[in-house]
């Protein structure tokens, strides 16, 4: 799969402050790419570099194989974290203006806006002023404006903030649909469960440096610790635990279940999972057998702490 966006060794200094240090990322075409990192890590600066708001001191950015230039403005849709609209302007006028700034003709923008307003059931907002709308309502309009010109690359910075669960779900479905239609999405958020749910690839930025990137599955494989969470029904828990701890690394596990069973985390040292399973079935009834896969949250915290 080819990459839609390639950021190559980009650095950016603000005075003495290093905001980005030799950061490279590659965003595959048609993927949802999670850009993660603690507050102040440099995510927003990187996003601004991609949007040509900030010029990098060093390094290059290529979109669709072409060095970033003015013509790419219409290929990118950006929903910033710090977002707002003109308070005293009418919704329709405002959306038309912003769409025209992205290079759409007025007529084209109007047709598409009508379509999207119908789709999100906000058609009757056209003549309202932004100050009459709630925050969530305004966010919906911003979302529409971001995707209206059908950009190849969509950049969402905390897209779900300000939405109730119903609307957040609606927006999530729209993002997935846009990806199906061929768009590539960069997704920056602190909500790890949505990363888990949506992202194919991630990059982790910490203190201006990229410290981790790749396909989410590969990263999880890399971070897994060969540990299984098991539940087993037995008459003599203490004996079984002792027997197990002679063969494997064992620690207490905590998960919810209906039975009163022995719950353990068991780490395999070179043994195959089947060896463990065979051993367990010979000792009692196995009610629970799951490989512990690290969550994005765990990976995030662990990696940031280690750096």
């Amino acid at each position: 799969m080819s990459n839609l966006l390639e950021v190559n060794k980009v650095s950016k200094n603000f005075g003495d402050f290093k905001a980005l240090n030799n950061v490279s990322i590659a965003v595959p075409k048609g993927s949802i790419f999670g850009l993660l990192g603690p507050n102040g890590a440099g995510k927003t600066t990187l996003i601004r570099v991609i949007n040509q708001i900030t010029m990098p001191d060093n390094g290059t950015v290529h979109l669709d194989g072409e060095a970033l230039n003015e013509n790419h403005i219409k290929d990118i849709g950006y929903l910033p974290e710090e977002r707002g609209l003109y308070k005293s302007m009418k919704v329709g006028e405002q959306a038309l203006y912003l769409a025209q700034l992205k290079g759409l003709s007025k007529a084209e923008a109007k047709t598409r806006l009508k379509y999207w307003f119908e789709r999100l059931e906000i058609g009757d907002w056209w003549n309202k002023k932004i100050q009459e709308l709630s925050k969530g309502m305004a966010q919906k309009i911003q979302f529409v404006v971001t995707v209206l010109h059908q950009p190849k690359l969509l950049i969402f910075d905390e897209p779900f903030s300000g939405f109730d669960p119903i609307n957040a779900n609606l927006i999530k479905d729209e993002i997935l649909r846009l990806r199906e239609d061929g768009a590539t999405v960069i997704f920056s958020t602190h909500r790890m469960e949505s990363v888990e749910e949506l992202c194919d690839d991630i990059a982790l930025i910490h203190q201006s440096n990229k410290i981790l990137d790749g396909r989410l599955i590969d990263i999880k494989r890399q971070y897994k610790i060969n540990t299984f969470e098991v539940g087993i029904r037995t008459n003599n828990k203490a004996v079984l635990q002792k027997e197990l701890s002679e063969k494997f690394e064992v620690s207490k596990a905590n998960f919810k279940s209906l039975e009163d069973e022995l719950k353990l985390n068991i780490k395999l040292n070179g043994d195959a999972p089947n060896d463990l399973l065979n051993f367990l079935t010979s000792k009692g009834d196995v009610s629970h057998f799951v490989e512990l896969i690290p969550s994005v949250n765990d990976i995030f915290i662990q990696t940031v702490k280690n750096n």
């Binding site: 708001i53 910033p80 609209l85 700034l101 992205k102 404006v145």
Partner: peptide, 15 residues
């Protein structure tokens, strides 16, 4: 006004 309404970043990603 553009700063306080936070629309500025949306606009300068276009112009």
């Amino acid at each position: 006004e553009e700063k306080t309404s936070r629309i500025i970043e949306v606009i300068i990603s276009s112009v």
